[in-house]
């Protein structure tokens, strides 16, 4: 088949070249050869037609060859050329690094300044400390946004599931709590986390994806909480669960169905400036479902003291995979 297509490509090219030659020679030799003026026009027409036909054959051959090439590589699960998402990711990674550089400088200087002020207490204006706190508070936000973009690009790549690895969900939640505890304290809030049982053990999962989902949930909870955020880990024989609860004002029932829509934030309803991209929950649920789990929400926005929002992430523990030799 390939050899036939190559012949077509060459044949088409030769025909088109013949057309060009005919066109060029028509005014020079047409009159001499046929000795009649009227012959000139037919030769020109023939040349033009040959060019069109030749180029048509060549282009069609290339198109067929390209399509065949893609279908063969697609069956193998790999494309010789990069998919859109892979190319975007490749461009994003150096960009990611470069974008982080000025922020690392800003955060570094802010932390140095804070250390200097700590060494001389009472000298600094409280307003300056508030400004430094604001820079520090925005840092996790920036980290999450960059991470969201990266995961969003990866989600567009359907063939690119990361292999399952042994993961301690307790350790993942501990890291996220560590990251957000300082942010919460500065905002006058607090995070408490625990697991039941205390030693939850290992599961087989994608560590990055769990960390990403729970980070989005905790980031949201800290933003909307009144004073408390709780993260609780539990498990049953087939799944493990992460429940992220906050004592914020709650979400009205009519908005709950839109919560996981791409780009939706509460400000959309109030026609205010968005405080977040509205991608976090969309990405979190997409990732959870891709791993065979789910992300659900339950909320109470009543005016009494029970108002709250709770997200429940459930993911398969995959504990049978190693036994079946699927690792």
């Amino acid at each position: 088949m390939n050899r036939l297509l190559t012949s077509f490509k060459i044949g088409g090219g030769v025909i088109a070249l013949g057309g060009v030659v005919s066109l060029v020679l028509a005014p020079l030799i047409g009159e001499k050869v046929f000795d009649f003026l009227w012959v000139l026009e037919p030769l020109t027409y023939i040349g033009g037609a040959l060019i069109v036909a030749g180029l048509g054959v060549a282009v069609a051959s290339y198109a067929v060859a390209e399509r065949q090439n893609r279908s063969i590589q697609g069956l193998n699960g790999q494309y010789a050329g990069n998919s859109w998402s892979e190319t975007t990711l490749q461009y994003f990674q150096p960009f990611d690094h470069d974008l982080g550089r000025p922020l690392r400088r800003i955060a570094g200087k802010e932390r140095e300044l804070r250390a200097v002020m700590r060494a001389a207490p009472g000298v600094a204006d409280p307003g300056v400390i508030d400004l430094l706190d604001e820079i520090e508070r925005q840092t996790p936000n920036f980290r999450l946004m960059m991470s969201n973009i990266q995961v969003l690009i990866q989600l567009e790549s359907p063939d690119k599931d990361e292999p399952l690895q042994p993961v301690e969900p307790t350790e993942v939640v501990r890291r996220i709590a560590d990251l957000y505890t300082a942010v919460a304290v500065e905002a006058g809030k607090e995070i408490t986390w625990w697991s039941e049982p205390a030693e939850l053990g290992l599961v087989y999962a994608n560590s990055n994806a769990i960390e990403h989902i729970v980070t989005n949930l905790v980031d949201n909870a800290v933003r909307y909480a009144g004073t408390h955020v709780e993260v609780k880990l539990t498990k049953n024989p087939s799944h493990f669960f992460v429940r992220v609860w906050d004592d914020g004002p709650g979400i009205a029932q009519q908005y709950l169905q839109h919560l996981f829509d791409r780009g939706w934030t509460p400000e959309v309803v109030q026609r205010e400036e968005k405080s977040s991209s509205g991608l976090g929950l969309f990405i979190a649920r997409s990732l959870a479902r891709r791993m065979g789990g789910d992300l659900t929400v339950e909320s109470d926005n009543s005016a009494d003291g029970d108002h709250h929002t709770a997200f429940m992430l459930s993911l398969p523990s995959n504990l049978t995979a190693p036994l079946n030799g699927l690792r």
Binding site: T181, W194, E196
Partner: peptide, 12 residues
């Protein structure tokens, strides 16, 4: 000391 937000459950 290990993780500032970690709760110690009643059972422990």
């Amino acid at each position: 000391y290990r993780s500032p937000g970690e709760l110690v459950a009643f059972s422990r």
